[in-house]
Nucleic acid binder design. Structure first.
Lengths: 147, 147
DNA sequence: TCCGGCATGTCAGGAGTTTGACATGGCGGA
DNA sequence: TCCGCCATGTCAAACTCCTGACATGCCGGA
């Protein structure tokens, strides 16, 4: 594919660069987690539940940037696999708090290695002194569409 | 969802920030392009073909970060919609060069407005003097997994 | 010359995700 | 109190995308 050094080149736009970086990350995550029998949303779900036990389906969905419906499927899969538990009913409200099982904690611990390595590889790719600024800029991009 | 100011907080990791920013962008693109009856891959495909007419299926797939198979579906849709043309056969090799039709150029021109606005909104979200550095850092992240 | 490797386009199957819709359960103002 | 509003969990259907696989067509070294 020939280079096209135009001022209007799509590849010069911020959105394109962001998408490309995210695609690279997603690919690395998919490959790394497959060895542990987990998908990216499943891992994200486990990680969130480890840090904040008792999160509901909707809260997990927001935390992993998918819809409630998608997270529902993910939770069902994790539940069938015995990685999490969720009460069938609740006394107050409708939100069902999810918790990791012992097996869930084990699987999460096993998968963390590859994910941490990927994150470290990302961090190592940018000059150390630029990292805090990069994190702040990414936050600004995330908030750009919050109204 | 309560805050958790831990050093190991998932939300502090580079990968999480990147994913969140990309999710925000993807959502804005989806919403904006839906008004024009286009999906994100479809738009990306049209934009690439406008700048580099004659790209093949595989080249377009690499340029938009999807598989050849997915791009094949996208191209078929665009072809059925009369936005692009592709020869049924070729004299040399197997790659089939795709080109925009007049209608394709019109639809692309119409959709560009919202996409450019989104990109501008992104660019406006970061301090102007930081933008070049941010673009460079995103490139470094993309290249982090190229080996 | 020939053959192995490589890239391309395509088909089939399945997994994941989304949109749309509905019923249930708090919450707060009228 | 009551009723509208919002959030939640869930179902159904459609769509998108991926993995796996196969056949075709160049290109290189043996």
């Amino acid at each position: 594919m020939p280079d096209l050094p135009s001022a209007l080149d799509v590849t010069q736009r911020l959105g394109y660069r962001l998408k490309r970086a995210a695609a690279a990350l997603r690919g690395a995550m998919d490959r790394g987690l497959r060895e542990h029998g987990l998908t990216v949303p499943q891992y994200a779900c486990l990680e969130l539940l480890d840090q904040q036990p008792g999160l509901s389906n909707a809260e997990l969905a927001r935390g992993t940037f998918v819809t409630r419906q998608s997270m529902n499927v993910v939770l069902r899969g994790l539940q069938d696999g015995g990685l999490i538990t969720r009460p069938a009913t609740t006394e107050h409200g409708r939100a069902l708090p999810a918790h990791l099982t012992e097996e869930g904690r084990r699987r999460l611990a096993a998968a963390r290695g590859v994910v941490y390595a990927i994150d470290q590889r990302l961090a190592d790719a940018v000059p150390a002194e630029r990292l805090p600024g990069l994190l702040a800029d990414l936050d600004r991009l995330s908030a750009a569409f919050d109204e």
